[in-house]
Design a protein around this nucleic acid. Structure first.
Lengths: 192, 192
DNA sequence: TAAAAAAGAATGAACGTTCATAAATATTAT
DNA sequence: ATAATATTTATGAACGTTCATTCTTTTTTA
């Protein structure tokens, strides 16, 4: 149905506009008026698709998290070794952040804003299940340290965001060499 | 001079009010009117001490960074071993963030906002010189990996902010045991 | 009494949101 | 198949509020 498609297009145009603006001016800088203008739509139209600015940003958050997870766990094979699986996931996360800077920077901004509510954050976390699986198996096999997934995440995945930030600010170029170094650091941090 | 002291008091009352509000409602939620009300001052008075909201937030940023650095490098002794020095610095950073949650959360928010300008960020970085010294010496002695300080920071210090966030959201309690685990992870990540 | 500091009221602009209305689309009746 | 009608979808203008900032006046200090 053409109508439905048109609706979907408009919805994603609005999400895309929001992503772009948040990336440029911060969450508070992405006003509904600006979002509307960039999406070629009347401000009022936004409220046909989202019930508030908070809703808009939260839905965008879930949307981006989902595509991040999709990229991260593509070709996931539970038959591979723990290290191989972790390595592939880690590199895919890094490459997603490098190749989708707007999305990555948006997620970074979301980490510390009160705009994203707790239920939405929880929902977003679910996408990481496969990574937690790998860690749990790794612990059972004595390959990975017996520590909470929050620690594992903090020291392997979270740092990528920092590096991406530095790269954006031209302070530290994230070339392949740097990325390989970074993975080594990440792996050394959590392996037994 | 009593007058000067009163000025200093008012300035820090304004900074404190800003810190408190940013922590509660985010940077955009800390309006000049609210800051004034909490500091028991007229909105206009703020402009006697700061030339704009951006200036206010940037000065607060430097202020907090400085007290963070003061706490972090207290009793620094360049005669100690690399690991001892790093360990003490790391724990002091962690404890500062645990004991000064408002300050820590504020700094986290600053990581991803366009409100803090690049010169101010550079200024804030200078406070970390001693940490960089330790790392450089460590590299020379073959104790620490030969990688950029940005990588070292990303994998040892930056994760603390994540853990603090989880702690604030009651998802992962940062008790002494967790903290010790975390330090082990941090050290394993960068040692040779 | 002169100068500095602080106040409160007021500024235009921008905010998120809603409203009455218009355009576009779907449904029904002929 | 076409005309008339109902329904959805979208609009631009306007809402009340709040924003950062400034202006004029009053209070405090020297």
């Amino acid at each position: 149905m053409a109508l439905l498609q048109k609706s979907i297009d408009k919805r994603s145009a609005l999400l895309k506009a929001t992503l772009c603006l948040v990336n440029r001016d911060g969450i508070q800088g992405a006003s509904m008026a600006k979002v509307a203008r960039i999406a070629n739509v009347s401000p009022a139209t936004i409220y046909l698709y989202f019930e508030s600015k908070q809703d808009l940003v939260n839905q965008l958050y879930l949307d981006v998290k989902e595509s991040f997870a999709k990229a991260t766990f593509a070709n996931y094979d539970s038959g591979e070794t723990i290290k191989d699986r972790f390595e592939k996931i880690w590199y895919k996360m890094a490459h997603f952040k490098l190749n989708n800077k707007e999305e990555a920077s948006f997620l970074s901004q979301c980490d510390n804003t009160p705009m994203i509510d707790e239920p939405t954050r929880q929902e977003g976390l679910k996408h990481l299940k496969l990574l937690f699986d790998v860690w749990n198996e790794g612990k059972q096999q004595g390959i990975i340290k017996e520590i909470s997934p929050y620690l594992l995440y903090a020291f392997t995945v979270y740092p990528i965001a920092f590096l991406m930030n530095m790269d954006n600010r031209k302070l530290c170029t994230l070339c392949d060499t740097t990325l390989n170094d970074a993975f080594k650091v990440a792996w050394d941090s959590i392996r037994r």
